[in-house]
Design a protein around this nucleic acid. Structure first.
Lengths: 174, 174
DNA sequence: TGAAATATGTCAACATCATTGACGTAATTT
DNA sequence: AAATTACGTCAATGATGTTGACATATTTCA
């Protein structure tokens, strides 16, 4: 009857700000922990769908970005994911053999392997995206949709900015 | 000169809402991707500090929660992290051998191993927390501190609620 | 045109973090 | 005294990541 069964919310619940701020600014443990628990559950639900296909989180990411940018090259995908060629290769092989992804030689540069989802791949991508979308939609609804831009801004600000900004080709992804 | 060097922000940048909503509600790809990139960088920075000690993300989580709840039992830690005993054991062993964590037998129940950080462990925990705190502080400042409660609420809503709510002892953590 | 650079695939070897299932010991509860 | 609990540990396995080297096809450049 021990093991206090701490819920994620309970663990993350912290006294918001110290009443009389004598201490030199305590870390924002509440948001630190909420990010941990939120992300875990956010990817945990898709994980269970992926398991049915024998896939993992890495497959999810690959499927996601090919879905978002059909015709993506392998090099571009490596840039986005920031993993090594070898890590991607294993996952990509699974997806191609399982007929979720197909490759076509680039029209201009025939060395390139442009990546596309098959119908099967798109179906899986949609299923995964729907799960995450619904979870986000619920959360956005809870705070009021008018605050969604704040969330986007906050998350964008958490991202490292030193990484390759858009080059000559244009301001962002096509 | 290829490889469009897509920045995380650029990749996540999406047309916010479809102009004339004919399609049955596209997934919120923007927030889905922002969560991915934000979390990656949020944990990536601490990762580099942990590397110097030969530790990984799992060590970070253990150190964090022991820091937050000194005297935590092993069972409670397992409940929070939702990993197996074996996964925890390896990490905990590293931390104990490296003199970052110490165990004391429980006063009431001497089977329990209460977990505490050593000074060394607390120093590392503080370093890690400070990194994440500063990143969060920057992001909160960008949206205006008055919106911080919205962020907390949003993240809390992303968390699964089915998990063990607080038991007999009360509504939540002390 | 021939050499150099690029895009991709692949191999071997290894590290981290997770899993399951089984078993042992000490302490507590019934 | 027996059952349960808290914890530690062993063996085996899987998913995901790493580095470094090398091969092939294709494009670019001098």
């Amino acid at each position: 009857m021990t093991s206090t069964l701490l819920s994620a919310a309970a663990v993350a619940a912290t006294q918001p700000a110290d009443p009389r701020a004598l201490t030199p600014a305590l870390p924002d443990f509440e948001l630190i922990e909420l990010l941990f628990f939120a992300y875990r559950d956010f990817v945990g639900e898709p994980d269970r769908l992926l398991e049915r296909h024998g896939f993992g989180r890495a497959h999810h990411r690959v499927i996601h970005f090919i879905n978002r940018h059909p015709g993506l090259t392998v090099a571009e995908l490596l840039d986005i994911l920031e993993i090594t060629k070898q890590s991607l290769a294993r996952v990509l092989k699974d997806l191609i053999h399982g007929d979720f992804v197909e490759q076509k030689a680039g029209a201009e540069d025939r060395r390139q392997r442009l990546l596309f989802l098959t119908d099967k791949g798109r179906a899986l991508a949609d299923g995964l995206a729907t799960m995450q979308h619904q979870r986000i939609t619920r959360a956005v609804a809870a705070i009021g949709p008018e605050h969604r831009p704040m969330i986007a801004r906050f998350l964008a600000e958490l991202i490292d900015k030193e990484r390759g900004a858009a080059p000559a080709t244009g301001p962002s992804a096509p």
